[in-house]
Simulated scan of single mutants.
Amino acid sequence: MRTEVMVDQEITHVAAVLSSATFRNLSTQQPLDAMTRLERIAPAAAAGGARTMADVFNAAYATLRRDYRNEYVFKNAVVSSVVFGRHRPTTASAILELPVGASFADVAVFNGTSTVYEIKTDLDSFARLDSQVADYSTRVEFVNVVVSDARASAAERHVPAHVGLLALRRNGSFTQIRPPHSNRDRLRSDHIFGMLRRAEAECVVGAAALDTAGGPAERWEALRSAFAALDSTRAHSGAVTALRHRGMQAATVAAHADLPQSARALAYSAALSKTAGARLLKRMQQPIPPVWGD
């Protein structure tokens, strides 16, 4: 009889395949760590019909969806439904774990506006939700909380009225419990500034606003002050453009036919160089070594 410890170990190995560390390592010239993780679950995947590395990723994802809906399952479902479903990867981009105030947005999507998806799996509490929503609401236009369908009723008691609520079904689709309301009146330019890299913020305010003497500290303060002085609508619009462009760097890999759909969120969580991305895509289509199927 299989013990609970054995099952837990198997799930741990499966979850390790669908991680940013494995994804990045698979794009390197010597992906020993990634290959070790893939090899651990390859026999079970091969028994289920897997033939390529991409098939192993898909098999791992199917196992998690069925037996252990961790945060990655939710993230990939959001990316697939929003970036590849509602929009297109050529018009919308995603950034995972984006620093937003003192919080990290699980999935942030940028197209003509900004939307954050805060995930609460069945293993998460709502203890930090108030502070997370406060961080998001002054920096992005729309905020959604994503839960499992079994937890939707309980979540409604914790989610503020202006925040949307989505429930993930077992089949991977979403039910919208309620839509989000715009945060346009809550946005603050000084808060939005903290989401951007220096070069991004400089593009938004323009060179003329940064004509100042002094060292790096003085120039940084001038940039921060100039951005904070912007109308919140302009600051938000500029940030959306900058962050959409940043997220688009992953689109070449994320939207490629050789990348399995199960790895879409990984592509947006681990932006790769052109060379590394090409190497990873090629490896995805390589056959599983015969010895792995034994």
Rank of each mutant, 00 (worst) to 15 (best):
F142S: 06
V143F: 02
V143G: 07
D149E: 15
A150R: 15
A150S: 15
S153N: 10
A154W: 05
A154L: 12
A155Q: 10
A155M: 01
R157T: 13
H158G: 00
H162N: 15
H162W: 00
H162V: 09
L165T: 01
R169S: 10
G172T: 03
S173T: 15
F174D: 03
I177W: 01
P179D: 13
P180K: 09
P180Y: 00
S182Q: 07
S182K: 06
G194W: 12
L196D: 02
L196K: 07
R197L: 14
E202K: 14
E202C: 07
C203V: 07
V205T: 08
L210E: 04
L210C: 09
D211K: 14
P216Y: 04
A217N: 08
A217M: 11
E218R: 12
R219E: 05
W220S: 10
E221S: 14
A222H: 03
R224Y: 08
R224T: 12
F227I: 03
A228F: 02
A229D: 07
A229V: 08
L230G: 01
L230Q: 03
D231G: 01
S232D: 00
T233Q: 06
R234I: 11
A235T: 10
A235C: 06
L243W: 15
H245R: 15
H245Y: 10
G247L: 10
Q249G: 11
A250E: 06
A251S: 15
V253I: 12
A255C: 06
A257I: 10
A257E: 14
A257W: 02
L259M: 11
S262F: 01
A263G: 04
A263Y: 02
A267M: 02
A267H: 03
S269E: 11
A270E: 04
A270R: 00
T275Q: 14
A276K: 12
A276Y: 13
A276I: 01
G277P: 07
A278C: 02
L280Q: 01
L281R: 11
R283A: 11
Q286W: 03
P287C: 06
P287L: 08
I288V: 09
I288K: 03
